[in-house]
Design a protein around this nucleic acid. Structure first.
Length: 879
RNA sequence: AGUCGUUUAGCUCAGUUGGUUAGAGCAUCUCCCUUACAAGGAGAGGGUCUGGGGUUCGAAUCCCUAAACGACUACCA
């Protein structure tokens, strides 16, 4: 065998074999690995952007999902992990536009059809990249069922869903104030607006009274340029300052529009000047005020946020000015005319368009909306009935709050790349027909119809993902067999974008919520807790890691660092630590395979079956497997990987392998058994190295896979106490040796006086205890010569065991005295605590008898230890 | 502003329903190339569990309060 595991050789070998034999195809795996369990495990991969590149967020998601899937598959469930990609409407469109621009092509010049061709070309070029990167991580998803949200069948599902919702009255078209991106020229949903704290200004502007221009009212605004669209000024009805102005007319500068002063209790008297300019067409709050008071909506912007032409009076000259240029010009003019009272610094939250990276403009437009409240209610009821749950539970409340305040979803986008809305507009009578079939003639007036030019929000097709991928709306075999799914695993950043909408659409169209568990994984950050970003240069590229240390190391690390309710801090050092663990697995296996490994537990002699270390390690294996199963059942990823790490490294390698060296051949069946079972436990975490070693160990053919072996169930056992005592003895002797600087080459004699039970335990295990402690036990009283002592607990309650080592064997008396003094001071502190506890009447009378008993036994034992150490110390000090 | 979360060893974090002298990994220090592994082994040091109150025989754990950090939500023009 090689000196170390070589990921560059083995990773790809197994990835290819798993793919070739389709172990991830549930029909194949279930046939190969039949199980009495008639259960399924279904998990839909959250589809990454089809043109995307693998980042740590993906790596974490895929690792966790694959770990759970491999585990459930090995447990005998019919496991489907379905991969796919998302068409990422706006993101991909922006990429392609940019790409064309780099070739000096204005995308609009290609026309819609021509542009879509370019999009498909772009996708064909990049779609395999993310798939190969997913494979590189060793993900066992079923490639025979891979889906893309723009596949024909998924497009049919989208159209079907849209039409159904329209027929029901859940989808409607309306003119509303929406979040408009002036750069990408499309509407954005509320969720796509990212708020940023910005240093800005607030301007106090005087609007003159119509009847007496020397008088006026001062309004405060952060957006002076929108004053061109003002249709009122609002004050609080109780505001003494302005009461007498209510109902009066103002003359709006630049436009000479007459606007009223009106009263509305939404105004906060203490903020700004207490008077608010109302621009119903360009501010969400103002829109509502406008609705209440019947104000006109005056749009002053073109779609790319320039001042429109045709505004009255002086405002007409602003036409074509960008919104920020207009702001400068207007504030300058106001100042010239003495209307600008003051400009103050002001922090405000600006809504930014994620894709365009420009401030979003509240903009009036016709859009398609989907009613949400009814669907949300149904999902909330299911959550309350515990039809599904959130892990970690914190997201439960966050989700509920959002669902209870949900607003209608704007589903249309003014883009070309995406699912075209299946609606047709009559060119003559303006009739709208929504249909899955292409409609070319108006059913009302027989004139020709044209298709709606909008596409659907990317998340609309994603919302159908758990069932559109299974063939819905057709009643397919997959749909019957695999829906609903068990787990939805994703990041919390798309809880509302995606998870909530899947739940609602799933409930709406299939009658059941699409998954039982929503597991939200943490955010991956760098070692300083910073978000990873290219501009910061702190990105740990998963592909580079896979190349340098292998996929298994990365998978182990991500599992080991993944705890609930906390971000995950990743660093190269941590990954190297788990690379070392992979290496440890490799080397331990190498050790086991030095002997004939074609044996099993059946070959164990009856004598060896009674052997304490054998019983101990088999018990530890059961305990570990039990822990791992329980942890994964509750998505406690760190706990599971830690249990395996600890068992394999500390129990198996540090103790059992060392013990086995004393009777190598006799122990071989145990070694083989424990290693084999460990590889099964390890497989979901590090599939490549475990698969490789499992084949090495058993000379298995390429038709058999560790991936399809039965996962150990485990038992909830206690650690064998006899073994624990001996471990303690060895530990104590090792400490003594280290601190007294006795070289390892020197075997030290240890004098012990034991009860018969203690002596029996020790004698039965003498060879390995002596080998690991490099000591020689002498079952006799020590001579009167000075000796050092170590005190230990016995399995007989309250009893102290004393190990005596002749001082002549130890090198340094001073250090030995110090060691004992330190022990004593610890014990004395402990004993005084115990004493005060036990002399406390209320403790003795109120604490459970069991607790009091153990405290008493502890006291007895510790006092005994102190007594012996004291005697010993005196003897040493007299030297 | 509101809601929620976090605060435990130098660092990153565990710590289930209150009950052994609060644990792990990494880092540090000491010793050791013992034929699976120096990417290793054996030891050691290191903590007023953020501060302050309370409940209790007993609190890292439950309650109140303060602070720091973080996330989410919101129409403060």
């Amino acid at each position: 065998m090689d000196k170390a595991y070589s990921p560059e050789i083995h990773d790809q070998k197994w990835q290819k074999l798993w793919d070739d034999k389709q172990i991830a195809n549930p029909d194949v795996s279930h046939a190969l690995h039949p199980s009495p369990l008639n259960e399924k495990f279904v998990l839909m991969m959250p589809p990454p952007n089809v043109t995307g590149v693998l980042h740590q967020g993906h790596a974490l998601m895929l690792t966790l999902e694959d770990t759970l899937t491999r585990w459930e598959r090995m447990r005998g469930k019919k496991a489907l992990y379905l991969p796919g990609t998302d068409h990422a409407s706006i993101a991909v469109q922006m990429q392609v536009v940019k790409h064309l621009a780099s070739k000096k092509i204005e995308y609009k010049s290609l026309g819609r059809e021509g542009f879509l061709k370019e999009c498909w070309k772009w996708i064909e070029e990049y779609r395999e990249r993310i798939f190969s990167q997913i494979r590189a991580l060793g993900v066992s998803c079923d490639w025979s069922r891979v889906k893309f949200t723009m596949d024909e069948d998924l497009n049919r599902a989208v159209n079907h869903a849209f039409v159904q919702l329209y027929k029901k009255g859940s989808i409607y078209r309306a003119q509303k104030l929406v979040n408009w991106c002036p750069k990408s020229l499309t509407v954005l949903s509320d969720l796509e607006v990212i708020f940023e704290e910005r240093e800005g200004s607030i301007w106090h502007i005087r609007y003159p009274l119509k009847d007496d221009p020397s008088q006026g009212i001062i309004v405060a605004t952060t957006r002076p340029e929108t004053m061109l669209g003002d249709t009122a000024v609002a004050v609080h009805p109780d505001d003494e300052r302005y009461k007498k102005l209510i109902g009066k007319k103002l003359l709006l500068p630049f436009t000479n529009r007459e606007i009223p002063v009106l009263a509305d209790s939404f105004v906060d008297q203490s903020f700004g000047s207490g008077a608010v300019k109302i621009t119903p067409a360009h501010d969400f709050a103002d829109f509502d005020v406008g609705q209440r008071h019947g104000l006109a909506l005056i749009n002053i912007f073109t779609p790319d946020a320039k001042i429109v032409a045709g505004l009255p009076a002086e405002a007409a000259s602003f036409a074509g000015l960008d919104r920020f240029e207009a702001r400068k010009k207007i504030t300058a003019l106001l100042e010239d005319r003495g209307l600008l009272v003051k400009e103050e610094k002001h922090k405000n939250r600006v809504g930014m368009s994620e894709r365009g990276n420009v401030p979003v403009e509240p903009y009036l437009s016709y859009q398609w909306f989907c009613k949400m409240d009814g669907m949300a209610k149904a999902v909330v009821e299911d959550l309350q009935k515990e039809e599904f749950r959130f892990v970690p539970h914190e997201f439960h409340n966050q989700f509920m709050r959002w669902m209870e305040n949900i607003r209608d979803w704007c589903v249309s986008r003014q883009l070309w790349w995406g699912h075209a809305i299946p609606a047709y507009h009559c060119e003559k009578c303006a009739h709208v027909e929504v249909s899955e079939e292409v409609v070319s003639k108006c059913p009302k007036c027989s004139s020709s119809m044209t298709r709606d030019t909008d596409v659907l929000d990317t998340w609309f097709s994603s919302a159908l993902w758990p069932f559109s991928t299974l063939g819905w709306p057709e009643k397919t075999q997959d749909m019957k067999e695999f829906y609903p799914t068990q787990v939805l695993e994703t990041g919390f950043d798309i809880l509302f974008f995606w998870v909530a909408r899947m739940l609602m659409m799933g409930k709406e169209f299939t009658g059941v919520v699409p998954f039982k568990n929503v597991y939200m994984h943490p955010l991956v950050r760098d070692e300083d807790g910073q978000k990873m970003s290219k501009t910061k240069g702190n990105v740990i590229d998963p592909l580079e890691i896979i190349q340098s240390v292998g996929a298994d190391s990365l998978r182990m690390t991500l599992n080991a660092l993944c705890v609930q309710g906390r971000d995950l801090r990743l660093s190269v050092e941590r990954i190297e630590g788990y690379r070392n663990f992979i290496n440890k697995i490799w080397n331990a296996s190498k050790f086991v395979m030095m002997e004939n490994s074609q044996v099993s537990l059946k070959d164990l002699s009856s004598e060896m079956k009674e052997d304490l270390p054998t019983q101990w390690i088999l018990g530890q294996l059961e305990r570990c497997a039990y822990q791992v199963n329980r942890s994964w059942e509750e998505f406690r990823m760190q706990e599971a990987s830690e249990a395996i790490y600890h068992f394999f490294w500390n129990d198996f390698c540090d103790w059992f392998l060392e013990i086995s060296k004393t009777k190598r051949k006799e122990y071989q069946p145990v070694l083989v058994h424990v290693l084999t079972e460990s590889l099964k436990l390890l497989h979901p975490l590090c599939p490549h190295v475990s698969e490789e070693l499992w084949h090495e160990l058993g000379s298995k053919g390429t038709d058999e896979f560790l991936a399809l072996q039965k996962f150990p169930e485990g038992k909830n056992l206690d650690e064998i106490s006899g073994f624990l005592f001996l471990k303690d003895w060895i530990g104590a002797l090792r400490t003594l040796r280290n601190e007294s600087r006795v070289p390892l080459s020197k075997v030290i004699p240890v004098y012990v006086e034991l009860t018969s039970a203690e002596e029996k335990l020790l004698k039965q295990n003498l060879p390995w205890v002596e080998s690991l402690s490099k000591a020689k036990f002498v079952f006799a009283q020590a001579s009167e010569a000075p000796h050092s002592i170590v005190t230990l607990s016995s399995f007989e309650k309250g009893r102290t065991i004393t190990l005596k080592v002749p001082m002549s064997e130890l090198v340094n008396t001073e250090e030995e005295i110090q060691r004992i003094q330190k022990d004593l001071s610890n014990l004395n502190q402990y004993v005084s605590g115990l004493k005060s506890k036990l002399s406390n009447d209320s403790f003795v009378s109120r604490a459970p008898a069991k607790v009091v008993e153990t405290e008493k036994a502890k006291l007895l034992e510790v006092e005994e230890k102190i007594k012996k150490l004291d005697e010993n110390l005196k003897q040493l000090e007299s030297l």
